[in-house]
Amino acid sequence: MSKQPLFEIKNLKRYFPAKGGKTVKAVDDVTFDIFPGETFSLVGESGCGKTTCGRTILGVYPKTSGSILYEGEETAKMSKAQLRQFRRRNQMIFQDPYSCLDPRMTIGTIIQEGMNVHFKRTPAQRNEKVTELLFKVGLTADFASRFPHELSGGQRQRIGIARALAMEPDFIVCDEPIAALDVSIQAQVINLMIDLQQEMGLTYLFISHDLSMVRHISDRIGVMYLGSLVELSPTAPLYEKPLHPYTQALFSAIPDVHRGKKEQRIHLQGEIPSPINPPSGCKFSSRCPYAQDRCHEEAPALRELEKDHFVTCHLAAQL
């Protein structure tokens, strides 16, 4: 892709203070770009820092160090007016459709709340806009007067999407938008998201641990482990030939309904180490089946092994 990236994230770090003067390295030195119009996914197990990463990019959490360039401009140095626009143009959809909608507001108010701050409209125009948004996410105009508790999980998630769209954004961070939904509803929400992307040219940062859905929706994928990016690649090559031992193990654990052929499952020993005290050298070295002395001592850098396919592993070329 030769286009100018929408976001350039360089050496991003986000640490949280923990008890006893320790720090949790939730996001530790992550570098990637997001291009306009694409779906970039972050995958990994819980606690790997994918949600923190998404939130830090939007400025929900201040970064500890590193740089976030939005259309070439450092977000931390933006003026108030620029930040206002930045926040409008970059929206978020949350995982839990139950807790992310205010139970005491009607759906109409929820959708309007942010939009009214940014757009000067008459009340009639506002209502018209709400109706239009409801249609866009596959609901009817009468939903505007209902309350969140009257809606099912899938419908609430649609409201979450409508609320984000109300701001006329170009970029949406989708933080596990389907994790709390039933399989059949998941498909509906994903279809809606793909349609909206094609219609409005949206860019998504899709955060999920559902690897089959990620494969379906993503253009490029970053695999995270313990706060670091271990592999970065376009979707097809990543699923065909994952290079990092962690990615290989992660993908082999996907339970598959297509039982035609079975690949050998790679068993990882133990669980993710604590991000307060990550292993020295390569962070995956404590669980890696191929780890050598070098892996325990020296942290590998992200390198391009094949075209557009980056990996953080000393041994990836030999494996």
Binding site: I185, S212, Y239
Partner: peptide, 24 residues
């Protein structure tokens, strides 16, 4: 059938329509 086809298959083209069950 509906349950099985709402899971994206490996052979399925990326970003194509997933089968989704209408109604409740």
């Amino acid at each position: 059938w509906a349950l099985l086809s709402s899971i994206p298959g490996r052979a399925q083209e990326s970003k194509s329509k997933l089968y989704s069950l209408q109604g409740t």
